[in-house]
Amino acid sequence: MAPGRRRSGSPLVRWVLRIIAVGYVLGLVALPVGTVVQHTFENGLEPVLESLRNPDFQAAARLGVFVAVISVLINTVFGIGISILIVRYRFPGRRLLNAIIDLPVSISPIVVGIALIFVYGTNGWFGPALNSMGIQIIFATPALVLATVIVALPLVVREVIPVLEEAGTEQDQAAQSLGANGFQRFVRITLPTIRWALAYGVVLSLARSLGEFGAVRVVSGSVAGVSQTPTLFVNDAYQEFGAQAEQDAFTAAFLLMCVAVLFIVVIALLRPKEQNQ
């Protein structure tokens, strides 16, 4: 903002507002975050390394990354498809579709988990049929993926839709008149147009997917080394007694926090590129 355009309000009011705003943000967020870092390293580096060598932690990390990557892939493919449908086509139920996408952010993750049990659980609507085919969903990896996909559902769509709307269909028509077929237009025009929004949505989804706790807590069963994700590991380790267990919880939390901050920084770097377009 140009300094000359700054409001000529009284400097006292400005300082008071500034102190309240910055104080609130720092007190509410930065201070607790800093305390976790301090907690994690209060006994030096060795206990932290000990936590990292814990096989349960390593298994949880592998499972967490696996579930997050699969979920993000699914949400990216469907997110692009649904965004194109919503922006480019008019059909009955379009507004409804638009609203359904946002639903998962408005309901409790616990409700999401419970709903999955009702539909895919052993006594659920599809559970028995799937079981007889030898497919187990609840208390197994598929449920983790499903729960994660649901809670991160709108993130890609909400990033891609505004960019597609802004771009319009003229470039697509121009490409068509130059001989490009549908697939060529998608690869050469649509994808490059949405690439930054897509990257942004993927990073957001990845953060949400790695960090999901409530819905996963309901459907996982949280068996260490089998169905325990990093967030479940943090919870379970913290509930256990013993200094090393608590250290494990803080180490895992610290790592998840570093990943979260990394994502925020990546997003902050992506944002200007998106606006430049």
Binding site: V33, G211, F213, T231, L232, Y238, A253, M257, A260
Partner: peptide, 10 residues
């Protein structure tokens, strides 16, 4: 961006 359980621990 912070996982909720980590927020709880924080």
């Amino acid at each position: 961006a912070l996982p909720t359980i980590v927020a709880g621990l924080v």
